[in-house]
């Protein structure tokens, strides 16, 4: 019996390893290419990346560091805005009784049903009318506005699951509602907040279409726009882009996500597997 289980497990591991190998192929390709001289990439595709061409990273970093910082800044401010406002609203919807609550929450539910494809065109027109185009603050405000509804949904469900007694005793102790939010509700919701922040970071950092429409000058380019247009010239092979530098740029672009995962992976996995993001 034990032997049979071991055998089954070994088969599972083998299958998993095969799948793992294939999903690592692009990553391996990216890393090896990024360390190769571009002449070598064009000349002998399968040659090992020797000698290691670290200068690829110097060039990629110089070109892409500003777009990367810009995007991280936009994402950070957006996440703060989304989290702050949606916490306040979600708390009110979850914990307070007020006139028109059902109606106002229906407004939120209703807009949650409106898909992004419908609002893309008018958002572009509205952003133009409000002179928000080609400005990073404009982009940020838009992300904050767009992130509210989903965050309110998730947080409201979470706040509702918190025991009422804590808030009751806080109220008896004379704590204001604002204090209840930030001293009780929010700290208890940390895992879900981190999960939300990571989800927002991933979607903002990876967003392509909206920045493509919003931003049109090079000094405002976000990471995705900079990357898809990244064609550093190849000094020794004129007319062909330097693939080594390009892939070094790709590796560099992965660093912020690596950092985010390194700090928040535990919460992220917990958030997704706990079933908080279910409906």
């Amino acid at each position: 019996m034990i032997k049979r289980a071991t055998f089954n497990n070994s088969i599972s591991v083998t299958i998993l390893l095969v799948i793992l190998f294939f999903s690592f192929v692009p990553v391996i390709m990216m890393v090896t290419m990024s360390l190769k001289d571009s002449i070598l990439i064009y000349g002998d595709f399968w040659a090992p990346p020797l000698p290691l061409q670290w200068s690829n990273y110097n060039r990629a970093l110089l070109d892409l560091v500003w777009p990367a910082l810009r995007t991280v800044a936009v994402a950070a401010v957006s996440i703060i805005g989304i989290t702050l406002f949606s916490c306040l609203a979600a708390y009110a919807f979850a914990r307070l009784k007020f006139f028109g609550k059902e109606f106002l929450f229906m407004l939120i539910v209703f807009i949650f049903l409106v898909p992004g494809v419908l609002t893309l065109t008018p958002s572009f027109v509205l952003a133009t009318d409000l002179s928000m185009r080609n400005s990073l603050p404009g982009l940020t405000v838009w992300y904050i506005g767009g992130g509210q509804v989903f965050a309110i949904f998730i947080l409201r469900a979470f706040f509702q699951s918190q025991p009422e007694e804590i808030f009751e005793s806080a109220r008896i102790d004379g704590a204001s509602e604002l204090r209840s939010v930030f001293a009780i509700a929010v700290p208890l919701a940390r895992p879900i907040l981190v999960t939300l922040a990571i989800m927002n970071f991933l979607s903002i950092y990876n967003d392509l279409i909206w920045p493509l429409l919003m931003l049109n000058s090079p000094e405002n380019r976000t990471m995705t726009i900079a990357l898809q247009a990244y064609q550093p010239p190849n000094e020794r092979l004129p007319g062909r882009p330097d693939l080594g530098v390009i892939t070094a740029g790709y590796v560099f672009a992965s660093v912020p996500i690596l950092l985010v995962f390194a700090f928040g992976m535990k919460y992220y996995i917990e958030g997704l597997t706990s079933g908080a993001i279910k409906s």
Binding site: F85, S86, L88, A89, Y91, A92, F93, L96, K97, F98, K101, L104, L107, I108, I111, V114, L118, T119, P122, S123, L126, V141, W142, I144, G145, G146, Q148, V149, I152, E177, L178, V181
Partner: peptide, 21 residues
């Protein structure tokens, strides 16, 4: 108090979601 708490979210949602819709 509740209105104050939901005000920023509601405003943002109206301007950036309802108006475009």
């Amino acid at each position: 108090v509740a209105y104050l708490l939901i005000l920023p979210s509601m405003l943002l949602t109206i301007v950036f979601a309802y108006v475009p819709t």
